[in-house]
Measured scan of single mutants.
Amino acid sequence: MTEYKLVVVGAGGVGKSALTIQLIQNHFVDEYDPTIEDSYRKQVVIDGETCLLDILDTAGQEEYSAMRDQYMRTGEGFLCVFAINNTKSFEDIHHYREQIKRVKDSEDVPMVLVGNKCDLPSRTVDTKQAQDLARSYGIPFIETSAKTRQGVDDAFYTLVREIRKHKEKMSKDGKKKKKKSKTKCVIM
């Protein structure tokens, strides 16, 4: 069974824990209790493949930012979460993405942009803004509501699919490099 290491990042209060708990335990946590770091595991079937999701729910508070490099190193894919009623959390996505790329030393890291709290009427981040940002990053965008469960499975499952595509691409690139290195030079 394939294991996928997913990391949920975003500013404090955007609903990272609520999304994760909704996926794992099928219930909505409405009281806000700032996370330092929590880890969850769940076995699911995605596109006919049974897999184990190892999900790291991270601290959004700035005082825990020193811990970010460590979990970013171990993560295979990242859910970059903002709240649709919090423009600052949307603007912060850029910083999370840049930090992930720096730590992973790669421009090509599996990510999904997630606009959470889409059940709320007080939207300050337009869907088109988020779609445009995701398009500019070359990553999928999904709106979710941890409260109603809308888009929750889709967000995590899409990230797994992005990781699969990335692994497939990397193995193809690896095979191309191996083929090239088999060419021999004969000096007579």
Rank of each mutant, 00 (worst) to 15 (best):
G75R: 04
I84R: 10
G115K: 02
Q99R: 05
D119R: 02
Y71F: 10
R73S: 09
G115E: 05
Q70W: 06
S106T: 10
G115V: 11
V112M: 05
D69I: 01
D126V: 08
L79F: 06
G75P: 10
T87G: 08
L113H: 02
F90S: 05
G77S: 03
P110W: 00
G115H: 04
Y71G: 14
G115P: 03
D119Y: 04
Q70D: 04
T124N: 11
Y71W: 15
I84S: 14
V81H: 05
R102A: 04
V112L: 06
G77D: 00
Y64W: 14
V103S: 05
V81A: 07
A83V: 03
E76D: 14
T87E: 14
E76A: 08
S122F: 07
G77M: 12
S106I: 09
T124P: 09
E63I: 04
Q70S: 03
R123L: 09
G115M: 09
G75C: 13
D119W: 02
Y71S: 10
M111Y: 02
T74C: 14
T74N: 10
A66V: 15
L120V: 10
C80S: 03
K104W: 14
E107N: 10
V103D: 06
Y64T: 13
C80T: 03
K104Y: 12
R102G: 05
T124D: 13
Q70N: 02
I93R: 01
L79C: 05
L120A: 12
H95Y: 11
S122R: 07
G75D: 02
R123P: 11
R97S: 09
Q70F: 03
V81S: 05
N116M: 15
D108L: 05
K104Q: 13
E107G: 10
H94R: 10
D108W: 04
V125F: 10
D69Y: 02
V112K: 00
E107C: 13
H95G: 07
L120K: 08
M111F: 11
V125G: 11
A66Y: 05
Y71T: 14
A83R: 04
D108F: 09
C80Q: 03
A83K: 05
E98W: 00
S65Q: 07
V81F: 14
K117G: 14
K117P: 01
N116W: 01
A66H: 07
V112I: 10
S106P: 04
R123M: 12
A66E: 07
R73K: 08
V112N: 00
E76G: 03
S65L: 07
S65M: 10
Q99L: 13
S122D: 11
L79V: 11
T74W: 15
F90Y: 13
N116D: 08
G75K: 03
T74E: 08
D119I: 01
E107S: 11
S65R: 03
V125L: 10
V125I: 10
F78N: 01
T74G: 12
P121N: 12
G115A: 13
K117L: 15
G77I: 06
M111R: 01
R123S: 13
L113I: 13
V125P: 09
A66P: 09
G77F: 13
I100C: 05
R123F: 08
L113K: 00
V81W: 00
P121F: 09
M67C: 04
Q70H: 05
E63F: 04
V114N: 00
S122G: 13
M72V: 13
P110F: 02
E98V: 01
N116P: 00
F82T: 06
V125N: 10
D69C: 02
S65E: 13
D126W: 07
G75T: 06
P121V: 10
H95R: 12
I84C: 13
F82K: 02
L79H: 02
S122Y: 08
V114Q: 01
M67Y: 04
K104T: 11
D126G: 09
L79R: 00
V125K: 10
K101G: 07
R123C: 13
R68V: 13
Y71C: 15
S65P: 14
D69P: 03
R73E: 09
K117T: 14
K104V: 11
T74M: 14
G77W: 02
A66T: 11
I84D: 15
V81P: 05
R123A: 13
M111I: 09
C80P: 00
E107I: 13
V81T: 08
I84N: 15
C80N: 02
R73T: 09
Q70C: 02
D126N: 08
E76H: 07
D69T: 04
R68D: 14
K104C: 14
N86A: 05
N116C: 15
F78Y: 06
T124V: 10
L113F: 13
R73D: 08
R73N: 09
C80K: 00
C80F: 14
L79K: 00
E63R: 00
F90N: 04
P110N: 04
K104N: 11
M111H: 00
S106Y: 11
G115Q: 05
F78C: 02
V114G: 01
L113T: 04
V114H: 01
P110I: 02
S122P: 10
M72L: 14
T74R: 06
D105E: 11
G75M: 12
Y71H: 15
R123T: 12
D119E: 08
V125A: 11
S65C: 07
